[in-house]
Design a protein around this nucleic acid. Structure first.
Lengths: 365, 365
DNA sequence: ACTCGCGCCTGAAACCTTTTATGAAAGGTT
DNA sequence: AACCTTTCATAAAAGGTTTCAGGCGCGAGT
């Protein structure tokens, strides 16, 4: 049973294939009665223009790829990515664009990228210099980088360093001196460099210490997995080796919640004996017990902004932009002070923002 | 700046375009030195076979579509779908297949479906008879239906009725007589029919009542939105109009958690004054306070099974199957009894299962 | 002497749609 | 009767790949 093609429809409606094409794409050019005759025939036959043939001709499919550095199963299990995809989806949906999630196949991102039938990519958590990403530039496939630096493409980041600094500063201001910092494991290719999100957050923490004439010892910084279990075991292990922190700075909420769980198990009360500040403000942060104080970053908005940028580049070849969105300290119940908000960038840059949220070329570096 | 094509590579390597194609797809046919010469030229030029052109010819893109009846933003915000996608993704990932989420564009699913460059669809929460889905059959695009009935396609469901029956039976056995049932709003096209998941769960609840010579009054069944707020307001409103339930049966976890929130606000203790059983066992159910007793259904497994079925149909045109996975009562802290497990289907069907989990043509109807 | 097979590669057709240029028929106007 | 307008038809090209049927040169078998 063959697939039904434009020829079948043309035959049934008694018109040329060109007429059928027009009926779908430019009905004005045909008499109204002809159009309905053709459309009726198409419906009866169950015809729909072959997306591949159409894409081949127009060089456009109407599908955007979202590139993740991790297996797809871990992507959907991660609330951070869920919020991010929500933002991307809200834009693509309203324009009738499809969304293809692209993840490494058999460990190779490059092959997955090459085979993806998309018009452009939103790339998250990967650097433009990444060996798998670089070929895109050569092939002329547009992309936007999120949470990573880019010279030749637009990028969308948040003020990681400012947020981290605000969190650390808040705790130091309150007198804490024994602070445990939880950060990510480094990807294998940048072992001792402090690049990307991880590096920026760590620099923010460290700067707050230095500004007060303090130092952030290496053994107060623990690298672990970005999971509940990672935060849990990291805190438990630090405790077991004699550390007695009065506060925790975690570079991700999920690690912070894990650390709280370990602390509770060890008989510590949060925030009574231990104050904790996370990073990201995932939905779970507000629902944890106690509700987690954290650095809020606009995850969904980040997805929206990146997608709009990509679509604009696709449509009109718009200029590259480097956008940095603000973060803010959000005090809930894992810290003891009165709730207040301290917004980074928004305060630092004041009137220079666009749309109240975007900042071009943030000074935060 | 043109995209680099197979012709450019052929020219650079001094061979025909066919040779280039072979170098990529069937290197055995060419001399090894020729292959490396071609591949080198390709890499230098940044060439990758155009997915559309390739698909046009082979009638195969290596992309599966997942069809949702809702806007994409609500899909990613829904933990149920996240778990489901996790299952789908775990299968597609391991085979190097892409995943395209397809949602209604401008309210029309049909256009979105027609334009999607995919080899087949996993359809969730939509009936085969749906007006938007029906054209697929005609066009010969394979699909698998999840959480819905299908005559002409494979389907994957869980034992909704059995699970609901087990939940209701548990509460009735414990002496509850004032039970509030929370169920979904019906989609507009099946207003008074009790179709699909909603109908099956409702039938399960009702059957437990009938079997004990009791009846489930219409005003004890409240229809609301499948959200936290929906469950919350539904319970609050029932209470306000004089209902004094001692137990709640909710057809979804998120509604159950909403109802618990409302109950707490009204001064009721869960499970002391009110026992609650949800449905689905989303990750949040275990994290809620108190942890929610619920009917567990294998959400991720459902995605995996459906995807494997679809891929098999694509590859070998395998036979249609109608699979029903078991559900089980999972007692946590929103009910008072000792934790125990009661598994439906697994118990009912015993040895007739395949792989210990699947059941063909379940007797549950 | 002739054919066959072999190893390696080429040329052309096929896949399906869209777009464009050209032309023609039908019907109406001047 | 000459001319114009409307409405489509026809044909061809483009888009990039894969597949199928050879072609070429040459040594081996008959």
């Amino acid at each position: 049973m063959r697939r039904v093609t434009i020829h079948d429809v043309a035959g049934k409606a008694g018109v040329s294939t060109a007429a059928v094409s027009h009926a779908f794409n430019d009905p004005e050019r045909l008499r109204a009665t002809t159009v309905t005759r053709i459309l009726d025939a198409a419906r009866e036959l169950g015809y729909a223009p072959n997306p591949h043939a159409r894409a081949l001709h127009s060089q456009r499919v109407g599908v955007l790829g979202v590139l993740f550095p991790q297996p797809i199963a871990t992507v959907f299990a991660n609330p951070f990515f869920a919020s991010f995809l929500e933002g991307i989806g809200s834009v693509t949906d309203e324009r009738g664009i499809g969304l293809l999630t692209v993840t490494p196949v058999g460990g190779s991102l490059e092959r997955a990228i090459a085979a993806a039938p998309v018009d452009g990519f939103v790339i998250i958590g990967l650097d433009e210099r990444n060996a798998d990403v670089a070929p895109l530039r050569k092939r002329g496939v547009p992309f936007v980088v999120v949470d990573g630096d880019a010279e030749t493409a637009s990028s969308v980041n948040v003020d990681d360093e400012g947020g981290a600094h605000a969190a650390a500063e808040f705790l130091l201001e309150r007198g804490h001196r024994e602070v445990l910092v939880l950060t990510f494991h480094a990807p294998p290719d940048e072992l001792d460099k402090d690049l990307g999100v991880r590096g920026r957050r760590l620099r923010g923490y460290r700067r707050a210490f230095v500004e007060r004439g303090l130092s952030l010892d290496d053994d107060a910084v623990v690298r672990t997995f970005v999971t509940l279990a990672g935060g849990d075991s990291a805190f438990a292990q630090a405790w077991a080796t004699g550390a007695r922190p009065t506060a925790v700075l975690a570079a991700s909420d999920i690690m912070a919640i894990g650390a709280m769980r370990a602390a509770k198990r060890l008989g510590l009360r949060v925030p009574g004996d231990l104050e904790v500040i996370g990073f990201d403000d995932i939905p779970l942060a507000a629902a944890s017990d106690p509700a987690l104080s954290t650095i809020h970053q606009p995850i969904t908005e980040k997805g929206r902004v990146a997608t709009r940028l990509l679509i604009r580049e696709l449509d009109e070849g718009g200029p590259r932009e480097r956008i940095v969105l603000p973060t803010e300290l959000l005090l809930r119940d894992s810290t003891r002070a009165q709730p207040k908000k301290s917004r980074t960038l928004a305060i630092a840059k004041g009137g220079t923002e666009r749309e109240g949220k975007r900042t071009l070329k943030a000074a935060a570096r």
